[in-house]
Design a protein around this nucleic acid. Structure first.
Lengths: 343, 343
DNA sequence: TTGTAGGCGTTATCAA
DNA sequence: TTGATAACGCCTACAA
């Protein structure tokens, strides 16, 4: 089956290619009858225009892309839906593009911009330690959403939407201390983490300091590098080891809800109870933290609002209504069954 | 900043465009020195070739796409990783393409095939009630993975990888009956479901029939159409209603693990215990079913193997090594804490 | 309202 | 080993 082109349709309809083009793209100055006839032929022959040719020719488009690193992270699920809806509301089309683990999101973005003539980009997830110069290559508006930035990047001339990981993490540990816990273990990211893992650990340290609890390196557990990071499995493995080490603790703070759930399972398997024997807390506010038994105390990030705001900022920049913005959303400490006051 | 093209690079390097093209695409007959020089210029000017132009010109490519309906379904997470790895092993490039809820996967596929000159496609998720004629428009090899098909589509000249939903569902309900349950409620899909929901319900009915348990329509609960289907939230709402109805039952079979978890939560909230007061079972074999407390009895689908096999079949077809195949994988009944023998 | 023709940025053929 | 040049399929002045 030969691939059919606009020329074929033109020939079959007995018109010129430009008329076919006009028919397809809803141009105003075209006779309704000829348009109808052409559309019929198109349908009959199942003609589908080639996007590469379109994109190549067009100098403009109305499309926004969201690039996600870690596309199956449940934290992003709801955000994706919001992005899609918000973009659609603006009558733009929406592309969701996965960035593979080993890929550089900026490189992917640059390619995509040229290929699809994008109007704007939202980056979701990942680390982001790119030079300003590299970011400049993206010469279209973009927003970093839910991406932790090393401090030096603050006010760097681009927009960001995030929570203050240090502060929110502090909030959680402060709460745990406040209800009497002194021996608080943390499941942090692996040593080489320069991202949220580091920031959340920093919040932990600050809170301990405030409560004058001395630092115990044996309570700082690191996710295992050979297991998927931030996974339930990792939380399970780390907690199992902690329990077997015999090190005493009354609360366990996992820097993500998934890890917290893995931790709970390890405790149950060892015959422990949550929160009676060990309190467990997470971070992120995933749905499952609510549905888990016991429900998990966590820091809930306002994901929907963050997604919505990301798109708003992006369109403000596109429409030159506003300059870059750096929005820090407040997150919420949600106290549930997995933690209790120490008697 | 003007967008820089291959012509600019040619001019800047003092060579012709074809030489630049050869340098970029690792063509054999090119002087190593000129190649090096060109590559340097490319780097210096951050030149990135336009994919649309490439795709337009190329008549071939080595790329495989996976089209997913419901990209944030946790059931697909592991499969995605496997797909990516397997495709890479074959030295092909891999594209993950989301299909939006209201989109037609075949239409998306047809566009993508033309745009990217795809070599093959895997369809993941969704319903699939397309006519043969429509499928014929995809004139490249493809595999339907984890897609439920209405029976009339069996042996229809295309490849599929799936489990036998009726049989596996039967297995679960047969097990529940076998350990003494007579009043087994089911949380099925909404009425209009023509997909796995229908098949799994069919398995339930068959098992009841075998055990000569009379059919009780009050125990057939349907997911709420106004809540995301197959979600924990939906399971929660349905179960809450069931409990409040006062209808007696000893076991609750949810046709997906997520729904089962929502169901458990509703039972807990009502002061019930699992499995002591109500046994709960799920379907799919998500990780969370193992990590949940109590761990959930489920039917585990061999997702990794299914993903791997999908790619193998696809490449066999591409390389003309084999004709279409329809593989039914066996799933496994995994008995865990959420179910118990009725005394 | 319609058709012709040029060009979007590449790759590939063919001479040189 | 290299460089012109003709496609690839579409859109869009511009002319009719």
């Amino acid at each position: 089956m030969e691939t059919i082109t606009i020329k074929d349709i033109a020939r079959l309809s007995g018109v010129g290619v430009s008329t076919v083009s006009r028919a397809m793209n809803n141009h105003p100055d075209i006779n309704e009858e000829t348009k109808a006839k052409i559309m019929e032929i198109i349908k009959e022959y199942n003609y589908v225009p080639n996007n590469s040719a379109r994109n190549l020719k067009r100098s403009q488009s109305r499309t926004i892309a969201v690039l996600i690193k870690g596309i199956s992270n449940p934290f992003f699920s709801k955000m994706i839906t919001v992005f899609e809806g918000e973009v659609q509301k603006k009558k733009y089309s929406f592309i969701l593009q996965q960035v593979k683990e080993q890929e550089d999101e900026i490189d992917v973005a640059i390619e995509l911009i040229k290929e699809k003539r994008l109007k704007g980009i939202v980056f979701l997830g990942g680390f982001f330690t790119h030079s300003k110069e590299k970011l400049k290559q993206l010469n279209i508006p973009f927003v970093l959403s839910t991406i932790s930035l090393t401090e030096k990047f603050e006010d760097a001339g681009y927009s960001t939407v995030a929570v203050d990981d240090v502060k929110e993490s502090y909030k959680m540990v402060d709460y745990l201390c406040g209800i009497g816990h002194q021996k608080i273990a943390i499941i942090a990211a692996s040593e080489d983490d320069e991202s949220i893992g580091k920031l959340r650990l920093e919040g932990y340290e600050k809170a301990l300091k405030k409560h004058q609890i001395s630092w115990d390196s044996k309570l700082i557990c690191r996710m295992k590098p050979d297991i998927e990071s931030y996974s339930m499995e990792n939380g399970y493995a780390v907690t199992k080891e902690l329990l077997e080490s015999g090190k005493e603790f009354t609360a366990l703070y996992a820097i993500s809800d998934s890890v917290a759930i893995g931790a709970c399972k390890a405790i149950f398997d060892a015959g422990g109870r949550v929160p009676e024997d060990y309190c467990v807390a997470g971070f992120d506010g995933l749905d499952i933290a609510y549905y888990y038994q016991p429900s998990i105390t966590t820091i809930r990030q306002p994901v929907e609002e963050m997604a919505r705001e990301s798109i708003h900022i992006l369109f403000d920049i596109i429409r030159k209504k506003a300059p870059e913005r750096n929005i820090i959303f407040p997150a919420e400490l949600v106290i549930r069954q997995s933690t209790r006051k120490l008697q």
